[in-house]
Amino acid sequence: MMTTIPTTAHPIAVSTNGLNKSFGDGENRLHVLHDINLNLRSGSMNYIVGPSGCGKTTLISIMAGILTAESGETTLFGTPIHKLKSSQKAKFRRDNIGFIFQQFNLVATITNAENVAVPLLIQGKPHGKAIEQAKLLLEQVGLGDKVNGFPRDLSGGQQQRVAIARALINNPRLVVCDEPTSALDGKTGAQILELLTVVARDPNRCVVVVTHDNRIYKYADQLVEMEDGRIKSIQQVDHSRPTDSQF
């Protein structure tokens, strides 16, 4: 199933060049990323895999403009985000990136619709309009009857669907997922990945998934394997699948 033929039909969405990152000082200094060079294309589902501590979360944090690399360049959709100031990075993330987290990170005390609407509210969209849009998106992820409920009343899979809706509501060009299935059982995890696969069909969108769950590798277009802060291998997966997206 896996091949090494690169997909070149879509433009490069994410590009890193010579990324290095360390944590700590002196004897405690830990070099977690070594000279990372990587290109991820739009319309693709990219997996960054490897054992715990190999640097994959650090890498997506830098890709998403949350962490700053010590050296190297990161370009997202033509914007060199390593050159942006902190406030500019925040604005860039707000307008271009959606996040899906391992622990969902939903706010327990607001409704599911409000959780989904958060990125729009951060953009300054009126509350009512944001909620309406959130309700539509919740319907698309199969939670139309849960819009006024609270995350605590949902199963893990349903919470992750709310998180996916939140990540997509501002129509981001990059969706970053950190271990999106590790808190879910196998069946629910597969459902979530199928949903994300649909998300990744959008030719203008790039999805990056960090995982060490090898049960879900089959959903990837490109597998980036890391080890000890270095890219060990990059493998392309060729699938045939529809190209239109419902999101």
């Binding site: 998403a64 604005k91 707000r94 990136i97 996040f99 987290f101 990125p119 951060i122």
Partner: peptide, 16 residues
């Protein structure tokens, strides 16, 4: 903290 961190990751401005 985690909720505020999430808002920051999503891109909320410090003044907000």
């Amino acid at each position: 903290t985690r909720q505020f961190g999430t808002f920051k990751a999503i891109g909320i401005e410090n003044k907000t």
